[in-house]
Design a protein around this nucleic acid. Structure first.
Lengths: 186, 186
DNA sequence: CTATCATGGCTAATATCGTTAGCCATTGAG
DNA sequence: CTCAATGGCTAACGATATTAGCCATGATAG
């Protein structure tokens, strides 16, 4: 390859992620990323089509990170315990870095095939655990469509400080989860 | 009041809403609103502190509209039927105008007292129905914190085309809802 | 009536974005 | 050794939000 590259796709994504996670999506400016990479703004377009592509790369990386986190932190003996553990890990993932979580599902990106794939990938751990819990194959999808919206909505609302009427939020999370897991044997 | 005003706060909000709902939040540019109001961009700042304030006004209006919609469209004899009806109305509200729905909870606006108030207002119909369903007062909040995240997450995902693995989405919605309403007698 | 003064327009200007065009230096491959 | 592609750079454009400062109006106090 000609002309030694001062930066690289992965490095740029890493920088972009740092910006987003530290200060929200608006902080992901082309100039800021470039500057942090020791490069001028227009040079970024040699690596990414546009700012959206950069953000998309972040989103995909984050979804992979979510998948890995769920796999790593899901523990327990019974299927039910594992599902509860996974849900807690999901929630922790969101709370640990709100701006990171907010990137997920941002945009109407589901039309994008790469995002679709990454989302599907990040959902695999749940599918696997549901199967392991003995949920019939044709119920895995419907049950996921109860759990994931609940988790997603809960995390979004929690990191947005929407639960501001007092009461124990941890308890509410457990209650909701247990309600949803009613069909899964203890 | 001096100098006849060419426009007004409410008109500007209406215009802003039209733009947002038609083409998403990015379409809400100060110039576009101004032009549509027959006024130059800087004049908007006589009515709103900044673009964010205009968007906030939209969000509050939308939350009030949501409340009214829920009140209007919640029907049924049994408490359970009414809750199901309300949930369906909520989902319809989101699907009818995805960009309108997306404005809700956008931003981390819950720190803003006016937004908080509007959110609380929009949640009243649910609280009322839960009470009418005989849910104990100290359970209303926890149960809401199961239902609302589910509804919010479901609608967000649905309007984002996240349910793209086939299967009947309507059915999944009903299943999720019934699971959550398990405690409410038929 | 008239003087006042706050309201709500306007023009002009600035800073910051994303993005494109076009140029040039490097360097790996033939 | 040549050469072409890669990946940098400068310059520039258009859009955006926002500010400063000016001016006409017209309700209101005297």
């Amino acid at each position: 390859m000609p002309t030694p590259a001062k930066t690289s796709r992965p490095e740029l994504v890493a920088i972009a992620r740092r910006l987003v996670e530290a200060s929200g999506p608006d902080a992901l400016t082309v100039s800021a990323v470039a500057q942090s990479a020791g490069v001028k703004a227009p040079s970024l377009y040699k690596h990414f089509a546009d700012r959206a592509a950069l953000l998309k790369a972040c989103e995909i990386e984050i979804l992979h990170e979510l998948e890995a986190t769920l796999r790593r932190e899901t523990k327990g003996d019974s299927p039910r315990a594992r599902l509860i553990s996974m849900a807690a890990a999901y929630r922790r993932f969101g709370k640990a870095a709100p701006n990171r979580y907010r990137v997920i599902y941002s945009g109407n990106a589901f039309t994008d095939p790469e995002i679709r794939e990454a989302c599907l990938f990040s959902a695999q751990p749940l599918f696997d655990e549901l199967r392991a819990a003995g949920i019939a194959e044709d119920r895995v999808l419907p049950v996921s469509r109860t759990m994931v919206p609940f988790l997603h909505g809960f995390v979004l609302m929690e990191i947005g400080s929407a639960f501001n009427l007092g009461g124990d939020v941890d308890e509410a999370f457990e209650l909701g989860l247990e309600t949803i897991l009613a069909g899964v044997p203890r």
